[in-house]
Amino acid sequence: MLERLLPMEMRRKRRLARCAAGPLHDYLATPFVDPARECREVEYIALDLETTGLDPQKDQIISFGYLLVRGVRIELGSARHRVIRQACAIPAESAVIHGITDDQAAEGHDLEEVLTELLQALTGRVLIAHHAMIELGFIGAACQRLYGGELLLPAVDTLGQARAAMLRANLPIRGGELRLAALRDRYNLPRYPAHNALSDALAAAELFAAQIEERAGKHKLPLKALLMKQ
């Protein structure tokens, strides 16, 4: 518990020391971005996961979608979409939402292979996700299972950013207002079909760019003003 009071960089070093060799170790070996840096000069990975449920301990990751954001410039060439091969059948109720069937999942990638790829992409970068707790929870649990180590990932939560902005402006927050689609509407962003991991990752990336342009405008804004507490 006390560890939460330490700076991220120090926590990274502690976890690195406790981590066995492997992809997680490699990831943790690279220093985090300096939180004092101007946020538009940082590189980010916008990520979305589709899962069989909300509990990282019990539920499975079905697919990954992510792409690179350099400052506020989203680069589609970096886009990745990975469906994970499942050990057991996908529950019907979640298949209805993400549209991935057992057959597709059976042809998917190994979780370990995808996680290695993702950790490489995240090295020296910052995570962007909408309601990032879910992504952090599932990726953390997977690392724990596969590598026996603890993940630490600097992250910007676009949902948290929106909530904070509304609180700053003294606006009441109504139900559903913090949903990705509702927030995008406010910034005149187009409507994308929801619940595909990649298009949700892109949706979060665009929302992030819009939030930064709104909040920082022509002024400088350090990364630490955006990072979520974890």
């Binding site: 506020v72 410039r73 680069e75 589609l76 060439g77 665009e206 819009a210 342009e213 405008g217």
Partner: peptide, 13 residues
């Protein structure tokens, strides 16, 4: 599509 970048401009930019 793979070669596109995306930018967001606030009104008046």
């Amino acid at each position: 599509v793979g070669q596109l970048a995306i930018r967001y401009l606030r009104r008046g930019s």
